[in-house]
Design a protein around this nucleic acid. Sequence first.
DNA 1: CGGATGCATACTGTATACACTTTGCGGTGC
DNA 2: GCACCGCAAAGTGTATACAGTATGCATCCG
Lengths: 228, 228
Amino acid sequence: MSRTIEFKSLAPHVSLGDLVYQQIVEALVSGQYAGGEELNEVILAAQFHVSRTPVREALRRLAAEGLVVNQRNRQTTVVEISPSEVVQTYQVRQILEAAAARMAATHISSTRLAELKGLAKAATPRSDADWGNGERKFDEELHRAVAESCGNAKLQREIQRYNNLVRFVRSRVARSPQHLAHGHTEHLQILTALEHRDPTKAEAAMSAHIASALQVVLEELPLLARRP
Amino acid sequence: MSRTIEFKSLAPHVSLGDLVYQQIVEALVSGQYAGGEELNEVILAAQFHVSRTPVREALRRLAAEGLVVNQRNRQTTVVEISPSEVVQTYQVRQILEAAAARMAATHISSTRLAELKGLAKAATPRSDADWGNGERKFDEELHRAVAESCGNAKLQREIQRYNNLVRFVRSRVARSPQHLAHGHTEHLQILTALEHRDPTKAEAAMSAHIASALQVVLEELPLLARRP
DNA sequence: CGGATGCATACTGTATACACTTTGCGGTGC
DNA sequence: GCACCGCAAAGTGTATACAGTATGCATCCG
């Protein structure tokens, strides 16, 4: 299994710990590690051509975010996601982002709204094969805009922090891009509620959106068992 | 300023990093550091009679929780809490715990409810000087019970993690114990809603409770300026 | 043949040494 | 006198050496 990793990047004032962290997150979120797999500090250090110190730093950070588990004197292991934990993760996301949507309805700037409308148009598929990229970008930007525009930096921070776990969980269970098409009308409803500056509707739309995303994911759950 | 710290405790399978972390949290939450104060790794290591490694670990963890800030190549500093950040912190807490209360209404066990009722009785003051301890214990246990009984381990974890920041913020601004007396009837309303298994009322009661706790704190805000 | 015991091994936990970055101060040249 | 340059000190970032702990295996005893 070739899992060699290249970087030693050109970034000047970013610590190796940060780089290693980002690399491992990317690897985890793109499904390169199996649930329960052991992450050996020495091996990782060799792969990244750094010492154990930055690797340890990254692993502790990942553990704090819930992507890996480390018990004292044991190798840290990639978290195993049970169906019930998928539900729990989406529930927490629902709680955080629904609240953010409610607040964003009164705080979001009109320029930001205009940006989103542009992306929404771009995401509308010309052909049916055309889904994918445009919709994914719209999805990401919408959620990001809601978090950034909620008017509460601490809530924004929690949402973005939690997003790593969400991406991790999703990468374990969602394979088909069907949820993208599925989510388009929901996204538009959220956007419309924001345009109308309607907190209640924005909250409800976001809540429904995440609930339905969970449903889509749950239908694919049998996949959970067989992972690389 | 004698800030010597004793431990080197008897705990067998707890790492020094954990111990240092707990000690610093305790120090931060009990107001032993001023906002903006610099936390020097070497000095802390000396105070705890350990090397810099566990200290660094603890500091990174605290940074992840938002109690301190560290920029690359700069000393980590204790976070400075502005009035607006007090509001933001309580808002996030409100979002998380109100949701937990709603869920706990359907999940909490009757034995747990009985425990809480016992504490509630014990917290009712015989004399007026008697507030304080009983009420604080009731408060803590109620919030803990709600988090633990919400039926979502991930939500519970986020609440407990966030609680460190809440305690930190509160320690900066709340001086008088007046909020304890103030909160008693609100606590009872939460408990009653839980007993009635009424999610909506439980959520509303918790939400109102935290909002009013914020109000009490805001009235003491002038204190924010002058800290040790 | 089964089980317990001791040892080797492979890790993580901690300490320490070294490198790099930032910053403030002092000297020097204009 | 002022500005700029350079250097030294202090502090963090990283690497590495050392210590401690859990675990599997082999061996020995019953």
